[in-house]
């Protein structure tokens, strides 16, 4: 089965950046049918709110992977919305020039914060999707910086012309699926957590298969387990193909 992985961290806390390690990951991934892998960067290596200089260093590592395996890796530009418009624009322009195809946001701030506006405007102008880390954080202090599905869905509502990818289906769960209804510019990815049964089926039932993207969140997860949770789900074969490959292929304009 053909696969595009929309959510991967090939380099994680500094590990996995040597050429042999990267080559090995590519070889192994391809043996499982993974044709493309989106690199989101080593997002937490400098803590939750990296400086402009630290962002450049993380995105340079992603660019190195793209240079080594241009047919396999796709880069997303990691940004920190709290840095303000100028540094965001500058780093995004640099990454777009290097061929990056999306924006990755982690836990520098909550997706509903006003600081998101310049970044979302830049995403809109560049026609780039924004992948936002999302977790069930309702009524938890961590919500200040960890976006709850309510927050990420609000972001998608506020910026209907920007494609928002709400990361971590298995982290935001049933409530997140329900929040994501009626938001045509919002996609969800299947990354992270353990493969609990019934959730993907529920997402397909409520959202349809068109807005669901396969993601692994490696190295935190095992690729086989992440693929198996989709291929082993009680959904039809066409939905599996869409989730594993064709939805991301269309979204990222890969043909």
């Amino acid at each position: 089965m053909r696969i595009i992985d929309i959510h991967a961290h090939p380099i994680f806390f500094g590990s996995g950046k040597s050429r042999p390690e990267v080559d090995q990951l590519v070889r192994y991934s391809r043996s499982l049918g993974i044709e493309k892998m989106v690199c989101l960067g080593d997002v937490l290596v400098h803590g939750p709110s990296p400086t402009a200089k630290q962002l450049r260093s993380i995105n340079d590592q992603t660019r190195q992977l793209l240079t080594w395996h241009p047919d396999f890796f796709i880069g997303f530009c990691y940004l920190n919305p709290t840095l303000g418009e100028k540094p965001i624009r500058s780093e995004l322009d640099r990454c777009v020039e290097a061929g990056f195809r999306g924006i990755k946001l982690e836990i520098a701030n909550n997706a509903r914060d006003p600081v998101m506006r310049p970044l979302m405007k830049a995403a809109e102008q560049s026609s780039l999707p924004v992948l936002q880390h999302t977790w069930d954080t309702l009524n938890k202090p961590m919500r200040k910086t960890h976006s709850d599905p309510k927050d990420t869905c609000l972001l998608a509502k506020r910026f209907p012309s920007v494609t928002v990818i709400m990361a971590h289906l298995y982290g935001f769960g049933i409530r997140g699926i329900l929040e994501a209804q009626d938001l045509p510019n919002l996609y969800i990815d299947t990354s992270s957590c353990l493969p609990f049964a019934g959730l993907l089926e529920y997402a397909v039932e409520k959202l349809g298969p068109e807005r669901i993207l396969y993601g692994s969140d490696i190295p935190i997860r095992e690729l086989g387990q992440c693929i198996g949770r989709v291929t082993g789900a009680d959904i039809d074969e066409d939905a599996k193909k869409r989730i594993l490959y064709s939805n991301s292929n269309t979204l990222l304009n890969l043909d």
């Binding site: 609990f196 992440c226 082993g232």
Partner: peptide
């Protein structure tokens, strides 16, 4: 961990382990 987990996720995890 069937039925709480997707059975295939854990069989495939081992099947494709390097």
């Amino acid at each position: 961990h069937t039925p709480l987990m997707v059975t295939k996720a854990n069989t495939y995890k081992l099947e494709v382990a390097d």
